[in-house]
Amino acid sequence: MIQHHPDDALLLGHAAGRLESGRALVVASHLELCAQCRERMRLFEAMGGAMLEDVAPAALPSQALAQTWAAIDAMAGSESPVSEPARPVGTRPDLPAGMAWPRALADCRASRWRWIAPGMRWSRVKLPYDPAANVFLLRIGAGKCLPVHTHSDNELTQVLHGSFHDGRVRLGPGDFDETDPSILHEPRVDAQGECICLATVRGKVLFQGAVARWMGALVGL
């Protein structure tokens, strides 16, 4: 059962289309699994629609319609008569048996699993519409832990497989977490099996210790 969810500010931002692309991707991955948050999203979207209905009409420039039709005609004229080839499926690293990729990542490319430390691997996720977004997957073995760290800004994490505890909360499949500079933690994967998470980071992950900082630099965190 999912215990931890995005707060209302994140869901409102997602409903309004205001979230940065990496953050929107992680929130969307949570929504796929969480009926409770999908229901809240429907409420926020309905509220947004009601607010739009109350907005006073605004006059458009006299040439607005003509300019719109001209733009549509220009787009139609640039289309090739040859049918568009099928879009190639993005590369993806292997996953444990029974685990499925979030639909939110369908158009994304993800690198093969790369070694960080014994029992720890990562994969860079590339968004086709925002190549600069800092999104990645972490795959940590049973009983392993990330070094103690905090954050210069903000991190969103969605648990896709397995579970871990960071000293303040336990997160299992489907759970969502948000951390900031006020949180110093050491996420440790449960002994029952490995854990895979999808995450996006603003700023930097601030590891304690020279070796841990080297690991962070290796991953680009």
Rank of each mutant, 00 (worst) to 15 (best):
Ser83Trp: 02
Gly209Asp: 08
Trp101His: 09
Ala9Gln: 15
Asn154Phe: 02
Val125Lys: 04
Leu12Met: 02
Pro81Arg: 03
Thr150Cys: 15
Ala97Gln: 12
Ala199Asp: 07
Leu221Gln: 09
Val211Asn: 11
His149Glu: 06
Ser182Cys: 02
Val169Phe: 04
Ala100Cys: 10
Leu43Lys: 05
Glu45Ile: 02
Val169Gln: 12
Arg124Lys: 15
Leu65Phe: 13
Trp122Gln: 02
Ala132Trp: 01
Val26Gly: 06
Gln158Arg: 11
Leu184Asp: 00
Ile196Met: 03
Val205Ile: 15
Glu178Phe: 10
Ala50Lys: 01
Val135Trp: 06
Leu206Arg: 10
Ser29Arg: 10
Val27Ser: 05
Ala104Gln: 13
Ser123His: 12
Ala100Met: 10
Met1Asp: 11
Gly193Arg: 12
His149Ile: 08
Phe207Glu: 07
Leu171Ser: 14
Ala35Thr: 13
Met41Gln: 12
Asp8Gln: 15
Leu65Thr: 09
Ala106Trp: 10
Asp94Thr: 14
Arg121Cys: 07
Asp180Thr: 14
Leu218Ile: 06
Glu79Trp: 00
Asn154Tyr: 01
Arg213Lys: 15
Thr200Leu: 05
Asp73Ala: 13
Ser62Tyr: 00
Pro61His: 13
Asn154Glu: 06
Pro181Met: 07
Ala59Ile: 05
Glu32Lys: 13
Val201Tyr: 02
Asp177Glu: 07
Asn154His: 04
His5Asn: 06
Ala212Ser: 14
His185Ser: 08
Leu95Met: 07
Gln3Asp: 06
Asp130Ile: 08
Gly143Arg: 09
Val55Tyr: 09
